[in-house]
Amino acid sequence: MIDAGFAVEMARYNRWQNSQLDGFLEALPAEELSRDRGAFFGSILRTLSHLCWGDHIWLSRFDGGSPPPVGAGESVTYVTDLGGWRALRQTLDARILVWAEGLSDAALAGDLTWHSGAAGREVTKPLGLLTVHFFNHQTHHRGQVHAMLTATGSKAPVSDLFLMPA
């Protein structure tokens, strides 16, 4: 399905996107970050919080490291302000890159088994598929944040992969 190089490239892309996003978020007043905009998770900050939570839970499954200290029901309040988001995001992005750089094609061809709180049972799926899902989930929610940013009158990050610095 995918190879280890894809995972590293997507980890780099994720970090690049989040670092760009930070500047646009910093320019917004705090009330704009927390304003309910009718999106799935309501606000920019709640969407970013959920995305950090999602990355953290998947990473704990992928690398065996610590999971988030809160459950899925609290994913939208996992981070409560821009400074908290920034610190956690940088930590997660570094952890994602280390995990991706340690992946092998053989590992991606294998399965991952974990207990899914959402499904309420043990689940086994191909690691390659889960890796694609992981990066797709990031892109999906950053797209929502992009739309909410532009709704504030802000510009938003360039997201074209081919423009990512080498």
Results as ranks from 00 to 15, higher is better:
D93R: 07
H133E: 13
A147G: 07
S75H: 01
T91L: 14
A72F: 15
L25T: 07
V70S: 11
E101G: 13
A7P: 11
E74C: 04
L82A: 15
G83C: 04
W99V: 06
R35D: 12
S75N: 09
T124G: 00
R37G: 10
E31L: 03
D22G: 05
V123T: 03
G83P: 08
V98N: 06
G54Y: 05
L127T: 01
N18K: 08
I44A: 13
E122I: 15
A72V: 00
V132R: 07
C52V: 10
G117I: 02
L149C: 02
D81N: 12
A100M: 10
F41E: 05
V8H: 12
S19H: 11
D55V: 08
T139I: 08
L103V: 14
L45E: 04
L112S: 01
D81G: 12
W16D: 00
G42Q: 10
H56R: 07
R86I: 14
A147P: 15
A107Y: 05
A27T: 00
W85D: 12
S49D: 09
A106T: 15
S60H: 02
S43M: 05
D93Y: 07
M10Q: 09
L103E: 13
G65Q: 00
E32Q: 13
G117V: 05
T91N: 13
V123C: 00
T124Q: 04
E74H: 14
D22H: 12
P29S: 03
G38W: 08
E32S: 15
D36Y: 14
L130S: 06
A100R: 04
G117D: 02
A11S: 15
F134V: 01
K125W: 13
W58K: 01
G102M: 02
E74M: 12
V79G: 10
T124K: 00
G128C: 04
S49R: 07
V79L: 03
R61C: 00
L129H: 13
L103I: 14
L149G: 00
Q20A: 14
A30T: 13
E9G: 14
